[in-house]
Amino acid sequence: MSATQQAEGANTESTTAIGVTLTDEAAVKVKALIEQEGRDDLRLRVAVQPGGCSGLRYQLFFDERDLDGDKIQSYDGFEVVVDRMSVPYLGGATIDFADRIDAQGFTIDNPNASGSCACGDSFH
């Protein structure tokens, strides 16, 4: 079963509320990075924070905290968490991971972003 199918099969309320999908490549990379940390209490936290030249920027990091209003989506072997303030900005977003000569790292395709800065580091 793919990571996307697993996310779709997760708790309906969480899946609908979080609205973030990881591609299979991103899910494999996140799981590998968590395993590399050697901890079983870490989750991928996806957040939107003020900053950057377009006004908002993404943050992806591993976190063990439970914050009031967190929305959680389960994948095979880990969870993705979005804080309640970031949920409206991330509905329908897809996180991918590329490891090619022309691109490397996580990318976010967000239908809610009406534009981004020239460097691609922030959005509005």
Rank of each mutant, 00 (worst) to 15 (best):
Gln5Thr: 13
Ala7Tyr: 02
Glu8Tyr: 14
Ala10Gln: 04
Ala10Phe: 03
Asn11Lys: 09
Glu13Leu: 05
Glu13Thr: 05
Ser14Phe: 00
Thr15Ala: 06
Ala17Pro: 11
Ala17Met: 04
Ile18Glu: 01
Ile18Ala: 06
Gly19Trp: 05
Val20Tyr: 00
Thr21Cys: 04
Thr21Trp: 04
Thr21Ser: 08
Thr23Pro: 06
Asp24Pro: 12
Asp24Trp: 06
Ala26Ile: 01
Ala26Leu: 00
Ala26Met: 07
Ala26Trp: 01
Ala27Phe: 08
Val28Ile: 13
Lys29Val: 05
Val30Ile: 00
Lys31Tyr: 03
Lys31His: 01
Lys31Ile: 02
Ala32Lys: 10
Ala32Arg: 11
Leu33His: 00
Ile34Trp: 00
Glu35Gln: 09
Gly38Pro: 01
Gly38Gln: 00
Asp40Thr: 08
Leu44Arg: 06
Ala47Gln: 14
Ala47Tyr: 12
Val48Lys: 08
Gly51Phe: 06
Gly51Ser: 05
Cys53Arg: 13
Cys53Met: 11
Ser54Tyr: 10
Gly55Cys: 00
Gly55Leu: 00
Leu56Gln: 09
Leu56Asp: 07
Tyr58Cys: 08
Tyr58Ala: 09
Gln59Tyr: 04
Leu60Asn: 04
Leu60Glu: 01
Phe61Ile: 02
Phe61Tyr: 12
Phe61Asn: 15
Phe62Pro: 02
Asp63Thr: 03
Glu64Asp: 09
Arg65His: 08
Arg65Gln: 08
Arg65Thr: 06
Arg65Met: 09
Asp66Lys: 11
Leu67Asp: 15
Leu67Glu: 14
Leu67Met: 10
Leu67Phe: 14
Asp70Cys: 01
Lys71Asp: 06
Lys71Pro: 11
Ile72Ser: 02
Ile72Gly: 04
Ile72Met: 03
Ser74Gly: 12
Ser74Lys: 13
Tyr75Asp: 01
Asp76Ile: 11
Asp76Gly: 15
Gly77Trp: 04
Phe78Gln: 02
Glu79Thr: 01
Val81Cys: 05
Val82Gly: 04
Val82Asp: 06
Val82Pro: 09
Met85Trp: 15
Ser86Pro: 03
Val87Met: 03
Tyr89Trp: 07
Ala93Gln: 14
Thr94Lys: 15
Ile95Phe: 07
Asp96Ile: 12
Ala98Val: 13
Ala98Tyr: 14
Arg100His: 11
Arg100Leu: 15
Asp102Phe: 10
Gly105Leu: 09
Phe106Ser: 09
Phe106Thr: 08
Thr107Gln: 15
Thr107Arg: 13
Asp109Ile: 08
Ser116Tyr: 05
Ser116His: 07
Cys117Ile: 05
Cys117Arg: 03
Cys117Glu: 02
Cys117Ser: 10
Ala118Lys: 15
Cys119Arg: 12
Cys119Met: 12
Cys119Leu: 12
Gly120Leu: 08
Gly120Pro: 07
Gly120His: 14
Gly120Cys: 12
Ser122Asp: 03
Phe123Ala: 03
